[in-house]
Design a protein around this nucleic acid. Structure first.
Lengths: 251, 251
DNA sequence: ATAAACTATGACGGAACGTCAATGTCAAGC
DNA sequence: GCTTGACATTGACGTTCCGTCATAGTTTAT
């Protein structure tokens, strides 16, 4: 028999939240006193637990309500799905943490070189090769311009860009379980596009071509497979969806 | 020279968002055409990236604005602070993941959850349940019993409890910026109380005494300062608020 | 030249509460 | 028995961060 404030304190929310949840019929009190007071018991507490769990995942309350009201609501399945989600989030944050660490160390000058030059579809050694081929496939002017830009970056700047690239790919890999059309994947693609725009081009058609090349070109593919063997194909699909949705793909 | 929609697509937001950011002077366009059109360039793109980074951390836009506008904005300090934040988030998510895993196993009937397992993690409603019972039933006998329990714990169990303690303190440290009265801090205190009850007591007066001792006793303080120099003082304040609010502090 | 697609500025709406305000209720102490 | 202070209720309005028209001007493409 908990009152609003008691439950609120214990759950780390405010009474207003419980009022609101009652108002929208998301969490109705176990009992209501003759005085109109709300009293909560174990069932309500457990339901609140579920609600907070889903709220943590940024689900709108209406969806949470719908979820919990499904007659065939499969708690086990929901939890497992939640689990996957959590793992992806953790992965993403850890990658981010690494990048932050690298940046800090870089600022402090304790390290001079980034060890991982893995994700270099565009590193210096390979740049020449790609240029020739890219000249055929893509617009000549842009290729030249971006090649020039790349050369003008300092070694530090290049390392930063490469590190950022790796981070983005990791984020995209983390989004694979959720599908190429998922918000996480699409957000990754958005970041990838900005990243590419630093030294390449934001042109939609070329971006799509690049993404599709990731699985077609064996040299790219080898690099990508090292990170995750599904990445190359996934990128192509995710970028396609991204450009479709933004209406930048005429056909 | 990007237009609103182009930048919006790049960053994965909508034009409306950029309109709004302009309106509140969070992100003003690099240039404005004679026709009133907003045009964005690299500087704006980078600033937007920063904004989105902080927004991901659920910072209100006004705070982000204040952050970015600080004339003595210390990038290194900001990154280190960001790093701490990330670690706390990861910790929290991992704890949550454990709880979810245990719940899944519990549902599958392969294990029975001990009270301890049940109440670890961010699952606040479960804590609520435990606390509700504890509030009803704690008295001198139970306090004694739980104090004795500590001796009966195996070395492993003790380690687990200690690890849990560290985790709780990290969560509380993460709540410092939000104030001792914030929901996050108070939730941390709630966890701390459960934690303390394992081997000490849930008695309010004694808990307050312990918390206040953290800053008074130099041995405690040394330990706490190692985690965060604000922790000791913050704990005392947060616990005081917690007990005041729950009405367990008569004066 | 006309349509399609983009831009602008209001203005309203909505989600999820925060925050008074006015009022009723309860438990405790004198 | 009465006061007091903390709690409860229900409005009602405020706030943040945009989504979503509406209306109107601008640019681009054919």
């Amino acid at each position: 028999m908990l009152t609003v404030k008691q439950l609120a304190n214990l759950a780390g929310v405010t009474p207003r939240t419980l009022h609101y949840y009652d108002e929208i019929n998301l969490l109705t009190p176990s009992q209501t006193g003759a005085n109109g007071y709300r009293y909560y018991q174990k069932d309500a507490i457990l339901r609140l637990q579920q609600i907070l769990l889903y709220r943590q995942m940024n689900l709108p309350l209406q969806q949470i309500k719908a979820l919990l009201e499904q007659p065939d609501f499969d708690l086990l399945y929901a939890l497992q799905s939640h689990r996957t989600n959590l793992q992806a989030q953790i992965q993403q944050l850890q990658t981010l943490l690494q990048t932050v660490d690298q940046t800090i160390q870089h600022l402090q000058g304790t390290t001079t070189m980034t060890p991982k030059q893995l994700f270099t579809g565009f590193n210096e050694a390979q740049q020449a090769e790609y240029e020739a081929e890219a000249l055929q496939t893509y617009d000549a002017e842009i290729v030249k311009a971006s090649a020039k830009r790349w050369k003008n970056y300092s070694a530090d700047e290049k390392n930063n860009i490469l590190a950022e690239g790796g981070e983005i790919y990791q984020a995209i890999i983390a989004a694979i379980p959720q599908g190429a059309g998922s918000a996480a994947a699409q957000a990754g693609v958005a970041r990838w596009r900005v990243h590419m725009s630093y030294f390449w081009t934001p042109n939609p058609a070329q971006l799509l071509a690049i993404a599709q090349n990731y699985s077609a070109d064996s040299r790219f593919k080898a690099n990508f497979d090292q990170m995750d063997e599904r990445l190359a194909g996934f990128m192509a699909e995710a970028v396609r969806i991204y450009l479709e949705r933004s209406g930048e793909l005429s056909a």
